[in-house]
Design a protein around this nucleic acid. Sequence first.
DNA 1: ATACATCGACTACAGATGTAAACGAATCGA
DNA 2: TCGATTCGTTTACATCTGTAGTCGATGTAT
Lengths: 121, 121
Amino acid sequence: MTERISEAEWQVMEVLWATHPLTAHDVAARLPDAGWSLPTVKTLLSRLAAKGALSTTEDGRRYLYAPAVDRAAIAAGESRRLVDRLFGGRPAPLVAHLAEAGELSAADIAELEVLIRELKQ
Amino acid sequence: MTERISEAEWQVMEVLWATHPLTAHDVAARLPDAGWSLPTVKTLLSRLAAKGALSTTEDGRRYLYAPAVDRAAIAAGESRRLVDRLFGGRPAPLVAHLAEAGELSAADIAELEVLIRELKQ
DNA sequence: ATACATCGACTACAGATGTAAACGAATCGA
DNA sequence: TCGATTCGTTTACATCTGTAGTCGATGTAT
């Protein structure tokens, strides 16, 4: 659980967070245009299972894979890492950077506004 | 410049963004408790120079290193990558996660509030 | 029964990364 | 001038990551 999840692995996790349990074949089928061969997907599934990010259930001679870690927890951890590394732990500069890069839509800003209002209470 | 900067390399860049130019020795001396040997720091400097993230100026038989990339640009890029990967490109969930994890101080929230107000204009 | 399809496991391999020693050139101090 | 120090460069090596082939076991269809 302390183990990091790589970017390719993350895509696999996304599939399983969306729907689970799934067989390796189904996971591969749901990977949009990752363009990976089935063996590649299997390798990623094995690595994820080995590091405890996935749980496996035997179903005959194959496995059904399901997430064993909470997406929100991982996302929060990764966010904190980035904010720590890039902005000394302060999230405002991050938002400022996104804004400067024109990455924030009006909807994003509105969403943030609501969130901030809630946080203040 | 399209090259990514790894986490260890980032620490080296931080030193040089803070003060430059510096010799390899000075960079090593300013790396807080990274616990790296001088050869390690030199390797990181070389790799950074090779990928164009640092510029070098000859100073006798040694180099003076200085950043060749803008910190803000890199930080913005990395932020966008993370937000895309973890939150479908929407920054509000990121802030929400930080908040949920208790990572936001009152000062952070106040800072965000000011920022949002500015962004709305 | 037997060929074929399918699984997971094992193996492979190149590139990135973390970490550092070895080496040869240059320079400084005595 | 000659040894010690100090540079950058080259080489090293384990681990992680991306990507995939091979293989033995098992299940399925004929």
